[in-house]
Nucleic acid binder design. Structure first.
Length: 368
DNA sequence: CTAAATGATTCCAC
DNA sequence: GTGGAATCATTTAG
């Protein structure tokens, strides 16, 4: 590798030896005031340079070896290294000390959280599982979307790991190469182990910046995938009939206070095979839509009130139900309960008496 | 195909 | 954090 420059110098020397008149002319001019001894030295050196190609490779190696084995060589080497350290390396070392560690750590944490880095757990991630759980609860309809998400995440994961491995390999190869080169060169020029170490650090920094870019783009890819997946969650499915009935039953039997507690929500979620937040959404929607148009929901209210009443009656017939103000226990009480509840809702509303009376008539009608 | 229904999201106030 | 209100996006009924 480093044979090339030597050969080029050799050619140059040969070229000069082809024009002895020129070199002679130079030495004549410069040596005129310095005396003959100095002129002679320069002439010797030139001669040595010009005849260097005549030396065999073995001879050159022997000279090199002799130089390396010289007892003053380590001392000279150290001095040169020191000088170099003071002049060049101090300047180089001073710059570029800002640490992108915080950003790298953030990226690492994110990749770990998304399941891209870290141990493979069945190809899925905790975040994906959580997202899936939130999206459709126990519903099996969601599994196709979920597996799609997982497949894409696995793809990203694979690309990430392949690239990472490639970078690491390239980094190691390059580092080894540079280290070998510097070690080799340290025999002919002042390169201390410290400088080699520094060079390795520089290489690692450069490669880790590439790695950071890889991590960043992987994060972006995961984010895009995730946002698409979250968008896909808007592709909702209506709850099944049974779930809707359970929710409606609760709603109409607690019409005076249709705000299920956290425990009640959990219970309903379990019964309906949906999530607690879906229960909350449902009640939120139901309350606002019911309040907006009570008349429209009256029929539904009556159906569920009657149903609750029948249930309550059958339960009370068994004499085992604890009475509660919000859970009427006979058909008459239930309908009265709905009536009073609507009275309450309407009078607290600004819709006026017209709709109130329509509502009342509709409710009272079943008494006949 | 259209309108209504419905689950989810967002923004705001408390 | 929770609920009300408005709105979005999709499904369903006619």
């Amino acid at each position: 590798m480093d044979e090339q420059p030597r050969l080029m110098h050799a050619h140059a020397a040969v070229g000069m030896s082809g024009h002895p008149g020129l070199s002679q002319h130079i030495t004549d001019n410069t040596g005129a005031t310095d005396g003959d001894g100095r002129k002679q030295d320069i002439g010797d050196i030139l001669h040595q340079i010009m005849t260097i190609t005549d030396q065999s490779l073995d001879e050159a190696q022997a000279r090199k070896h002799a130089l390396n084995c010289h007892r003053m060589k380590p001392a000279l080497f150290n001095v040169l290294c020191e000088v170099k350290e003071k002049t060049v390396l101090s300047i180089r070392g001073a710059q570029e000390e800002e640490s992108p560690d915080a950003q790298l750590m953030r990226l690492d944490n994110m990749l770990l959280a998304e399941g891209v880095s870290g141990p493979e757990k069945g190809g899925g991630s905790a975040a994906a599982a959580a997202a899936a759980a939130a999206s459709a609860g126990v519903g099996a309809d969601n599994s196709a979307e979920h597996s799609d998400y997982r497949a894409k995440l696995t793809q990203i994961r694979q690309i990430y790991h392949t690239e990472l491995e490639k970078y690491e390999q390239a980094c190691n190869e390059f580092t080894t190469h540079v280290m070998n080169l510097l070690r080799e060169q340290s025999r002919t020029r002042p390169i201390s182990p410290k400088e080699i170490e520094r060079m390795v650090n520089i290489i690692h920094r450069k490669f880790s910046s590439i790695q950071m870019q890889l991590k960043q783009s992987t994060c972006e890819a995961v984010m895009i995938l995730r946002s698409r997946f979250l968008d896909a969650r808007r592709k909702r499915r209506n709850f099944n009939k049974q779930a809707t009935e359970i929710l409606n039953e609760y709603f109409y039997s607690h019409l005076s206070n249709p705000y299920p507690s956290e425990e009640a929500k959990e219970e309903l979620a379990k019964k309906c095979s949906i999530t607690v937040s879906q229960v909350s959404n449902w009640f939120g929607n139901k309350r606002i839509r019911y309040k907006k148009n009570i008349g429209k929901f009256q029929e539904e209210a009556n159906i569920y009130a009657a149903r609750t009443a029948v249930n309550a009656a059958s339960v009370s017939a068994h004499g085992s139900q604890a009475n509660s103000p919000s859970t009427p226990n006979s058909a008459g009480e239930t309908i009265l309960h709905v009536f009073l509840t609507n009275m309450f809702l309407f009078t607290s509303d600004s819709n006026g008496f017209g709709s109130l009376w329509v509502c009342c008539l509709e409710i009272v009608f079943p008494f006949d």
